[in-house]
């Protein structure tokens, strides 16, 4: 399966999140790693492997990232499996992650929203406690 463009990736990822929301159970996996496949045309010879291992740490050029998304369907539900993948060029990283954050935040609606009730309760307690203490003393 070929890689999608970033735009396609985001629209399809949003779809995946939406179906997940509708079903109310299941998982979504998002993975990112350096795209190391097919980047250097010449396969490293065993003699150079030591050098390559070190060259890995300081690549002369920024390398693209591979971002994948699946809905975690295994063998039994192979037909329902969704696999998305896209390649992010190093120049696009900032823009990609900005949109990524948007999509994820919109999609992960089942997480706990920020709980303000506790804070309010505490504030009330403080107020109430202060009021209670003052007449007693």
């Amino acid at each position: 399966m070929g890689h999608l463009t970033n735009d396609e990736f985001f629209t399809k990822l949003a779809d995946v999140f939406n179906t997940r929301k509708a079903k109310a159970h299941g998982a979504i996996y998002l993975t990112q790693k350096r795209l190391s496949y097919n980047t250097n045309q010449t396969p490293p010879s065993p003699e150079n492997e030591e050098q390559d291992a070190l060259a890995d740490l300081h690549p002369s050029q920024p390398l693209p990232l591979l971002v994948r998304a699946t809905n975690g369907k295994g063998k039994e539900h192979r037909a329902a499996k969704v696999k998305l993948s896209t390649v992010v060029q190093p120049d696009d990283l900032a823009g990609f992650y900005a949109r990524y954050a948007e999509v994820c935040k919109a999609g992960m609606a089942a997480l706990k929203p920020r709980d303000r009730t506790k804070r309010k309760a505490k504030a009330k307690k403080r107020k109430g406690g202060g009021g209670g203490v003052a007449p007693a003393s």
Partner: peptide, 10 residues
């Protein structure tokens, strides 16, 4: 070789 996986499950 390092990869980062984000798992979101309901």
């Amino acid at each position: 070789t390092t990869r980062i996986t984000t798992r979101y499950h309901l």
